[in-house]
Design a protein around this nucleic acid. Sequence first.
DNA 1: TCGATGACACGCT
DNA 2: AAGCGTGCCATCG
Length: 115
Amino acid sequence: MNKSLSKAEQIWHTVAVIPKGKVAAYGQIADLAGLPGRARFVSKALHLAPETKCLPWHRVLRTNGQLAFAADSHYACLQTKLLAAEGVPVIKNRVNLNIYGWQPELGELLAKLSF
DNA sequence: TCGATGACACGCT
DNA sequence: AAGCGTGCCATCG
């Protein structure tokens, strides 16, 4: 199916499936995208993702719930604002995954990713 | 074709 | 409990 798509594109599709108001970890995205353990690649894929894709990159954080950027980074501030705008409070550049952690549903993934 | 890179994750000290 | 160093893999030039 998506075999013709690049790994990066699979990452983009997976990120695009993250529901608003929820957040997912790099490792989780990599796993859902069919690239278990390739969390590092997710970072690169997002960096390569064209802004025209309008991907919700701000919903992607570390497995511990902390933002991937430095607290004083411009992007960190932007990500914090974007998440807050979706109803996800970011405290000290960190999000409570226990509450806002995205719990992917197989049906939704199959419908949008067609894996 | 080869070498270097990277918005990470995990383990050990 | 917190911090540091290492390893995996795909993409870019």
